[in-house]
Simulated scan of single mutants.
Amino acid sequence: MCNHASHERAHPIYCILPPHMLKEIAKKGTPQQRSLAIETLSADHTFRQIRSVQAAMIAPRRGVHPKPAAAPSAQRSIYTANNMETLPGTLVRSEGAPKSDDVAVDEAYDGLGATFDFYLKVFQRNSIDDAGMPLVGTVHYGVEYDNAFWNSQQMVFGDGDGSLFNRFTIALDVIGHELTHGVTEHAAALAYSGQSGALNESVSDVFGALIKQYALQQTASEADWLIGAGLLTSSVNGVALRSMKEPGTAYDDPVLGKDPQPADMAHYVQTAQDNHGVHINSGIPNRAFCLAALDLGGYAWEKAGRIWYETLNDTHLKPNVNFKTFAKLTVSNADRIFGAGSAESKAVSKAWDTVGVL
């Protein structure tokens, strides 16, 4: 139920499950699995149109920020769609309210809070828009809906089918990934197609992983560098949706197919599908970040994460940026932050060289 608009001025609905995975399920799954996958891929036209229009109406303009809130403070609201498709649904937990008796509600609440805390404490960013934007989440969307998405206004979580996918609130990095699409909208407005679209996806993976690592206080070497660990059920031959450390190895399953992500530019995938491969080729910049973080050691958000965050907010970063230009900007920001020829700068440059970008 996601409208992955390809025009750079359109504002897509960003889904965690890539279309290539859903298409595999639609071909190879059980009748029920195929039906659910086709339902997800074949969104109601009116629903997509409404979401697209709403997203365009409220989408941020780069460099234009609302008046900052007086004091940074999370403002979370969690709703339930009650297995319907109406958003936001019924309010079930607001900021400061005690835990509910619904695990999905509490996971969404905690995940939104962990993401807010990360951006505030690590980068002094006041919510998604850096101006105190309230964080809204809706759980129990649809019936056995196999996805989670950000629509420029809020997070939406399906319950999963229980056969291939668990509930989509289960993975903190998935929540961080989706909310980071909102950060990218406000900071860089990266076009959602080709290499700029793959960078858009990669930035969400990078900060989704860092949000999980920050919550667990894991160093780069302790982290699993997986996106969506715990989301796949035990019946699936796989460990996650993606591996940043080893792209292409996250799953190899009779129903889901094999993880198609390349690990370097020599295996870059030329395709018109998935907005020219935004979920596939994101493995290349993902691996570059992971290599740099592992090389630098310690907590990945302190050095590599800072470099990527500064690059995302760099006014030289254009919406249609390609891998090479983005890579050069990360090196430039490493030079600026840590000094030209610093260990940090060398690690970033070496990482991009290893994946064949520089």
Rank of each mutant, 00 (worst) to 15 (best):
H177G: 06
Q270F: 15
E95T: 08
P285C: 11
L112Y: 11
S234F: 02
L296H: 10
W150L: 04
R125W: 14
T249D: 01
A215N: 10
D259V: 08
S221R: 03
L256H: 01
G248N: 11
P66T: 12
G305M: 03
E246P: 04
D253T: 00
A187I: 00
V122I: 15
S342K: 03
L296W: 04
S196Q: 05
P88Q: 07
F338L: 08
P254L: 04
A240W: 00
V139W: 09
F326V: 05
S234N: 09
T86G: 04
S42I: 12
T233I: 01
I280Q: 03
S342G: 06
A351C: 07
P66F: 10
A26W: 02
D252T: 12
G89Q: 01
G137D: 07
H20G: 11
V92N: 04
L199I: 09
S6Y: 14
K346A: 15
R125N: 13
D264Q: 06
N83D: 10
G132T: 05
L120K: 14
S35E: 06
P66I: 11
F157L: 14
F116I: 00
A351W: 01
K324W: 13
A114S: 12
D110F: 09
D101W: 12
R167M: 07
Y141G: 03
A240V: 01
H4R: 15
N200C: 10
E246M: 09
D353H: 15
S349R: 09
N151T: 08
V355I: 09
M21Q: 11
E24G: 05
P60C: 04
H279C: 13
Q218T: 00
V206D: 00
A272P: 09
A71Q: 08
L358H: 14
A70L: 14
A334S: 10
A229F: 00
D106A: 12
V183H: 02
